[in-house]
Design a protein around this nucleic acid. Sequence first.
DNA 1: TGGGATACTAGAACACGTTCCTGTTACTGG
DNA 2: CCAGTAACAGGAACGTGTTCTAGTATCCCA
Lengths: 199, 199
Amino acid sequence: MTTTAPAQVDSETAAQRARRARIISATLSLASRGGYEAVQMREVAERSEVALGTLYRYFPSKVHLLVSAMASEVDQLSQRLQKRQPPGKTRAERVSFVLERSTRSLQRDPLLTEAMVRAMMAADVTVAQEVNAVRQGMSDLIVQAIRGDDGVQEHDVELAAILQDVWFARQIAWLGGRIEAADVWRDIHLAIGLVLADD
Amino acid sequence: MTTTAPAQVDSETAAQRARRARIISATLSLASRGGYEAVQMREVAERSEVALGTLYRYFPSKVHLLVSAMASEVDQLSQRLQKRQPPGKTRAERVSFVLERSTRSLQRDPLLTEAMVRAMMAADVTVAQEVNAVRQGMSDLIVQAIRGDDGVQEHDVELAAILQDVWFARQIAWLGGRIEAADVWRDIHLAIGLVLADD
DNA sequence: TGGGATACTAGAACACGTTCCTGTTACTGG
DNA sequence: CCAGTAACAGGAACGTGTTCTAGTATCCCA
């Protein structure tokens, strides 16, 4: 963190955007293969054809790197899911739909998920901005599902935050070997039923 | 993790119990002073007058060590709180009571909390047993508050799990610098109201 | 009570995140 | 076009979690 931060992302040169993309891509690939510990900074640098110092100029720590990678993944998930209103007549049904899709999407690549979620939890105050980007993306998804066609509802943002907390916590429990993959979804579904009971 | 595990805790000699206690005590003291990063294995070993290899025989990793320390702290908290039924006429009031006490108890020593919660989140499958001890302790506390004098209630264990998830997640958000200490309690209180709404 | 297994000490050694240094390349204003 | 500055490459070096080795002390049982 001694080097100066890179300029605003939207004022980067084409070469810099390409470097950033190569770094994220190498990170996702390594994480997908071997999880958190397989994402080694020297290896990421080598694969993205960038010097170690340059990697640290773009992402000041391994946690920044992995949380940024997750933000990019959540962005993609969000774009896929927000193409249309989630189906379902009740809030609970719609939220179940998006959270089930999100959960399945993560469980499809457990090692990648482990790496990203672990980084989210390890994030300290210096990573707040990147972490907030991830949480905002997930929150938007859930809030949209709660609202459905009915527009703003009371407490919808707070409810989304609670459900997101439970969602993350259950992923962690799964990654920590304390519950099975199938139980993740069962518990989240239960939480949705309890929190959005008045449907 | 190459050394053989120590014998069952209840079959340890007095000297071994004393070593274990010295290690936990040194850990708590270092964590309280400087948080997660201040708990350095060499320093813990030196302060507890134990060789580094011995420290690793008792606690196979830094995360094991800190989660075990948290289990011991939760035990103490639990014993203090369970002396009598939490006051309050409704489930929400009683749960609010124990979670507010627990939250205050943690916020009184932020660096210690940071160290312990961080370890909880970093725990992988090899720490499942220790993590479960902590969660069980917290769950007992909350379940007892939900039940009050009314005995077993529907979904009380699941509700306790959800509230514990939110409780942990809000601590992390606080430690991650994303919300203020005061907001931790506000959010948890809100979650209690939403999850235990039918009082 | 002796002898073998187990536990402990002291410290070197290793792995990986992070920092730092030196030299080179690419960009920008005059 | 040129000087000056910022960005990058390559790699050494450092800190801390973890492992390993060699020697010593302690425990347990025949």
